[in-house]
Amino acid sequence: MITVQDLGGPTAVARMVHLSVPTVHGWKAIPEHHCPTIERATKGRFVCEQMRPDAPWLRVPDKSWPHPKGRPVLDVASIAKEAA
Rank of each mutant, 00 (worst) to 15 (best):
L58V: 10
V73Y: 13
G26Q: 15
R52E: 09
W57Y: 13
G44S: 07
E49H: 08
A80G: 06
H33T: 08
H25V: 00
A29V: 05
A14C: 05
V76K: 11
A14L: 03
A12V: 10
S78I: 04
L74E: 03
D6I: 03
E39L: 04
G9S: 09
P61S: 15
W57G: 08
W65Q: 00
F46E: 10
R71M: 15
R59T: 12
P72L: 05
T3R: 12
C35T: 01
S64G: 14
V47M: 08
F46W: 15
V73A: 13
P10H: 09
G70P: 02
K81D: 12
V73I: 15
T37K: 13
C35H: 00
R45L: 08
A55K: 05
R45Y: 08
K63D: 13
C48F: 02
A80K: 13
W27T: 00
P53S: 13
T42K: 05
M51I: 02
W27F: 15
G70T: 01
R45M: 08
R15C: 07
I30N: 01
V24G: 02
K43R: 14
P72D: 02
K81L: 14
H34E: 09
R59M: 07
G26P: 04
G26D: 14
E82G: 07
F46A: 13
P31G: 07
A83L: 13
V73Q: 14
H25M: 07
W27K: 04
V60Y: 12
L7E: 03
H18C: 05
K63L: 14
G44N: 04
K43I: 00
V13K: 01
P22E: 13
P53G: 10
I38A: 06
L74T: 09
V24I: 07
E82Y: 10
K43S: 12
I30P: 00
P31K: 08
G26E: 12
V17A: 02
H33I: 11
V60F: 11
P61M: 14
R40N: 05
W65V: 01
E82V: 05
H18Q: 11
R59W: 12
P61F: 13
P56F: 11
G26L: 04
G70Q: 03
T23I: 13
K69Q: 13
E32W: 05
Q50F: 09
R45D: 06
C48H: 00
L7W: 06
W27N: 02
V4H: 01
K28S: 12
M51G: 00
M16H: 09
H34W: 05
G44C: 09
L58M: 14
P36G: 12
A80T: 08
D75R: 04
K69L: 15
Q5K: 08
C48P: 00
A29S: 14
W57T: 06
Q5W: 05
K28F: 02
T11K: 13
L58T: 09
G70A: 03
